[in-house]
Design a binder for these strands. Structure first.
Lengths: 211, 211
DNA sequence: GTCTATATGGTGATAGAC
DNA sequence: GTCTATCACCATATAGAC
């Protein structure tokens, strides 16, 4: 508020964001939260504006339409999670077994979906309700991430580290389905994420039955 | 069509449904499909009417509001699935091990969510978008079904059939999360349900890694 | 950058004819 | 039972003041 009306465009730095960048992030965060809560059609631009402490008309300064706003939310979710997982795996020593790579991917995926919370939730819950063009583009990105998992499982299978009767594509949907369900029930003040990750990793690795 | 305008109310039989009952089911089925596709707010009464070959105004002869219509859809999903699973378990011989009861429950759950398709999908996708009162009631029912799973796992654990370090509540959400994800990708012309059930059962029981 | 005011169109629900 | 016509409301998006 009360910023001088005329000022030079600022150099972007890591620490100082312009007023516009701050507002833009507030808008995006509010959008992610409300979209994931009420669905695409159930979310009004007024509600998002309210969550970002703006009036409805002001949103259009940052995003020219509801469609481009949900697209930005979905992008953030998909890119955030996949980039986190890719970088976690890339950071492992070359000698890491595939079994350990899978364990690392499970943990990284779980942590990053919970970290990206509302953005990941929005991907999960509203992707099916979004205008077709937006959906088409994002399904491509989501599938690319799914392919990463299949390749990881294939490598492990080729190295003889998996049970030989496991269907790899089915295993991928099984694993991601189980992990992503944490978005629906995990609460930050509950069990620490690391413990959830350890339990889920054990379940995926060895199942529930005693041997 | 072309039914006489005056006729006595019919006795209900298993084979013959009245015209009203047939239309009512068509409306419910169309509602389940469209709600699960477009979300609660994204579904218009006009679209449902269209799917049921009616005009929008005619829906209100069967359901007095959109809210009561989604409630009927959610009821069908939750009751259908839980009743199927309960009866599958009740039909097992008393001597059945808990491990085998769990296997049977996995298979029954998977088969019935896919059988109830759109109704189960609607529960999964729109429960969070529905008016609070409707949601409140249905969360109670869903939780009751979740408790059944926890009790089943507790019994197995008490009998020493599970790995002792498994967190039972976490295992329940893990199992149901993985199974329910099948709703998002399973297609009737793909892998037979029995085979999916066998694979998922093996994954939940023993995990993916070779020992 | 953010506001207010408003245009244009779609939505749930009702009334009453047939 | 199903239709047509319609009401009252709320949505996205735009225009222009500040």
């Amino acid at each position: 508020m009360n910023t001088p009306t005329l000022r030079k465009p600022r150099r972007r730095t890591a620490e100082k964001q312009t007023k516009a960048e701050i507002s833009r992030e507030r808008v995006l965060a509010a959008a992610a939260r409300i979209f994931s809560d009420r669905g695409y059609a159930g979310t009004t631009m007024r509600a998002i504006a309210d969550g970002a402490n703006l009036q409805a008309g002001s949103l259009y300064y940052y995003y020219p339409s509801k469609e481009l706003l949900i697209e930005a939310v979905l992008d953030m979710g998909i890119h955030g999670v996949s980039a986190s997982v890719y970088s976690a795996i890339a950071g492992l020593p070359p000698s890491t077994t595939y079994a350990d790579r899978i364990r690392a991917a499970i943990s990284a995926h779980l942590k990053s979906i919970l970290e990206f919370g509302d953005y990941a939730l929005a991907s999960r819950r509203v992707l099916g309700q979004v205008p077709v063009e937006v959906r088409r583009k994002h399904v491509v990105r989501r599938d690319a991430y799914g392919d990463f998992w299949v390749r990881l499982l294939e490598s492990a299978h080729g190295a003889g580290e998996l049970r030989s009767d496991v269907d790899l594509k089915l295993a991928r949907t099984f694993i991601l389905g189980a992990l992503n369900s944490a978005l629906e029930w995990y609460r930050p003040n509950g069990m620490p994420i690391d413990e959830v990750a350890a339990q889920f990793t054990a379940l995926i690795a060895d199942g529930i039955f005693r041997r």
